[in-house]
């Protein structure tokens, strides 16, 4: 059986006003099966959001464009589709929710009508049917008293409830794939727990595949079956969630896990940060993008970018060396460290 989603060697670039080119996504390949949850982890600028926008073909034009690669959904190439066909895919097959629901909701339209709109347009429901279905969906995503709240406006809802409204809209057409881009970043922890629980529960009921994009390793650990770690526009490690967290093989993943303060850690140990700053995507990256910050880097890392290779069954990492959690970090790195002065933006 083919995968539900297959991304092959995706390259997404942005032209900058100064005539430069940002390779936001630089050769990304992965697949996703039906009912599976994939976590994409990375820092700002790693290409995680651009990957999902590329799948939806929602890049801001004309600056952003897909420079190469293939994206197959159920065996059909999304990049070869007309805009008309693509709209069908967005309405019936892939749904997306974002970090800030307030910017995706229309402030002057009651939420019930916003949920009903896709039902009327795509499912050809009558206004009455659509309204009934909207109320049912609101109940399903845990909005209390949906009958009373269906005519309320977005500003009358709290952040968590707005995200529930977004999820209700996303569910209108029974999508096969839900892409959630930082769905809980703007929410408080107790509300985050509610929303993650809702996504988990709906996924089990509806057998949707989910891509959850986040910078929070804790969120991924709790919901994802598989994880892609992104850095500098590439996937640098990929595998089942347990492998990524228990036996990480890419120095960046190891560094991230070590640098996060954990609530279950009672020791007073100093955090072990990753030194330096993420790469400037406006400049071409030669070699491994992580090399300037890596404790294990050799001259080879600066010359040639490592390919994503299989390091264990079903587990791939992009590193020239066999680094594990047990590999001692060398005190003096063999590559000159970039000092704090690595200026990130253009002067």
């Amino acid at each position: 059986m083919t995968h539900l989603l297959e991304v092959r060697n995706l390259h997404t670039h942005f032209r900058t006003p100064g005539g430069g080119l940002v390779r936001a996504v630089d050769g990304v390949s992965f697949s996703l099966d039906r009912g599976e949850t994939l976590g994409i982890v990375g820092e700002s600028g790693s290409g995680k959001s651009v990957t999902s926008l590329s799948i939806m073909r929602l890049l801001s034009k004309p600056a952003g464009f897909i420079a190469g690669g293939e994206i197959h959904l159920d065996g059909r190439d999304l990049l070869a589709m007309s805009e008309r066909e693509m709209r069908r895919v967005r309405s019936k097959e892939i749904a997306m929710i974002f970090q800030d629901p307030m910017t995706s909701l229309n402030p002057v339209v009651p939420v019930g009508r916003q949920i009903a709109e896709p039902l009327r347009v795509h499912m050809r429901m009558t206004p009455r049917q659509a309204r009934g279905q909207a109320i049912e969906l609101m109940g399903r995503v845990g909005i209390p008293e949906p009958h009373q709240r269906v005519d309320d406006y977005p500003h009358q809802f709290s952040g968590g409830m707005r995200q529930r409204v977004m999820i209700a809209i996303a569910l209108t057409c029974n999508p096969k794939l839900l892409i959630a881009d930082e769905p809980t970043t703007a929410l408080d922890v107790t509300i985050q727990a509610q929303i993650l629980e809702l996504i988990r529960q709906l996924q089990a009921e509806l057998e949707m595949a989910v891509i959850i994009i986040t910078h929070d390793l804790g969120v991924v650990a709790g919901v994802a079956d598989r994880v892609n770690v992104m850095y500098g526009g590439r996937i640098v490690e990929s595998g089942p969630t347990d492998y990524i967290f228990e036996q990480p093989r890419m120095p960046y993943t190891i560094g991230l896990l070590r640098s996060v303060p954990r609530v279950d850690d009672d020791s007073d140990n100093r955090l072990v940060p990753i030194r330096g700053t993420p790469p400037d995507m406006g400049k071409p990256i030669v070699g491994c993008a992580f090399a300037p910050r890596c404790d294990h880097a050799h001259s080879r890392c600066l010359d040639a970018a490592p390919t994503l290779r299989t390091v264990a069954p079903d587990h791939r990492a992009a590193c020239h060396f066999d680094i594990t959690l047990d590999t001692p970090t060398t005190a003096a790195p063999s590559v000159p460290a970039i000092e704090w002065g690595g200026v990130s933006s253009n002067p």
Binding site: V189, G218, A221, T241, F245
Partner: peptide
């Protein structure tokens, strides 16, 4: 509830933890 809601970057621990889900909003 607050402590139980904080996700921990360990899939094994996450599977074992039970969350106290609060109802409603502030």
């Amino acid at each position: 509830a607050l402590v139980s809601a904080v996700p921990v970057p360990s899939p094994k621990l996450e599977r074992k933890r039970s969350r106290i889900l609060l109802n409603g909003d502030l």
